[in-house]
């Protein structure tokens, strides 16, 4: 009889790309539900729009490239990208902007570079930055969390706003929207207010923005799940959050009235989400152990720098993209020592 042949190892582990991506999606669920809880239906509507756009775009590009789209769609990477993008978007963003961002992420940032595994930049963050610089007004029009405003938009109202682009009858954007805590902190600090004053606002919770800090906690839970399942390793999140805490702590210690408490940095904006879900995107991140520590630490540092002195309220997207560019260089200089290689040997 004739037997099947193949190269060793003949046994392959249980892991595959679909499982990895599925695990990431699973880990995103608690944080996403928390966002829905605090910011209403817009979050989930954005998510649906972004995911649909991404999947359609990916299928279209694959068929244009004359490849089989099925295995690529089944690996769920497009869904992860769209999901992360949607979480970064304001809940009532006009639908076509979400579609644009999502398609840009998939078509330009991912597929034009060769598809999964070849993109030098994090597609979700590139899509977010495109929208942020193209539509600064809508992209900074956040909602106050329900706990602050006391008003929850109904599903119908949310759909109406997202698809028509105008607020429902009897309401204006001014009554509806609010700045994010990070945004407010920035603008009020620039008006020379003291932190103790700023924190009088009802937007503030124990550490960061009210609601936001709980969302952060739920994403943290998801991140810990990924760590436990070994989908990501500790280096990038730990070094990124560590350096953010360290640098913000340093400035806070120097002047607590003009620099917010370190925990504020941690639990505002996309710091937690970024540390566990975005900076850890393996394709665009550094891959060597030492390199990952440097990569994460530099992201943390840039987050603080851009938040404090930069032109935009949040900084995770910019920092991640900046360090994406540096990742190959970091990897080159941080190659691990090969077994049996002496310390002074050249790499």
């Amino acid at each position: 009889m004739e037997f099947a042949t193949g190269s060793s190892p003949h046994k392959i582990g249980p892991q595959n790309v679909t499982r990895v991506m599925g695990m990431v999606l699973l880990a995103l669920v608690p944080g996403t539900l928390a966002m829905w809880w605090y910011f209403g239906w817009g979050v989930l509507i954005n998510l649906m729009i972004a995911v649909t756009a991404a999947v359609v775009a990916e299928a279209a590009v694959m068929s244009l490239r004359g490849r089989d789209a099925r295995p690529v769609l089944l690996d769920l990477s497009a869904v992860v990208t769209a999901w992360l993008l949607a979480l970064a978007l304001p809940p009532l963003l006009p639908w076509w902007q979400t579609v644009l961002g999502s398609m840009f992420a998939i078509v330009v940032v991912k597929q034009l570079f060769g598809g999964i595994g070849y993109n030098p930049f994090n597609p979700a963050m590139a899509g977010y930055v495109l929208l942020l610089v193209s539509f600064p007004v809508t992209m900074t029009r956040w909602l106050p969390p329900d706990v602050v405003s006391g008003q929850a938009l109904s599903l119908a109202d949310s759909l109406h706003i997202i698809f028509s682009g105008t607020p429902p009858l009897g309401q204006t954007w001014d009554t509806l929207s609010s700045a994010t805590p990070l945004d407010q902190m920035r603008s009020e600090l620039s008006e020379n207010r003291m932190i103790s004053e700023i924190r009088q606002s009802p937007l503030w919770g124990d550490f960061g923005g009210r609601g936001w800090e709980w969302i952060g906690n739920w994403f943290l839970l998801g991140g810990l799940f990924l760590l436990w399942r070994r989908v990501i390793n500790w280096r990038i999140p730990a070094s990124m959050l560590g350096s953010l805490l360290l640098v913000s702590g340093l400035f806070w210690a120097i002047d607590p009235e003009t620099h917010p408490f370190p925990a504020f940095h941690l639990f505002s904006g996309a710091a937690i989400l970024g540390a566990f879900f975005i900076a850890t995107d393996p394709v665009s991140a550094s891959t060597t152990p030492k390199g990952q520590l440097i990569y994460g630490a530099l992201i943390g540092l840039f987050v603080f720098i851009i938040r404090t002195w930069g032109g935009y309220p949040d900084a995770v997207a910019f920092s991640v993209l900046l360090l994406n560019m540096a990742a190959p260089t970091i990897d080159y200089y941080t190659q691990p020592r090969v077994f049996g290689q002496r310390k002074h040997d050249d790499a």
Binding site: M1, A4, G6, S7
Partner: peptide
């Protein structure tokens, strides 16, 4: 020479 993996994948049929 060991075949390049893609070629091997084609040849690896169950007989």
């Amino acid at each position: 020479q060991w075949p390049y993996p893609k070629e091997a994948a084609k040849g690896a049929t169950h007989g």
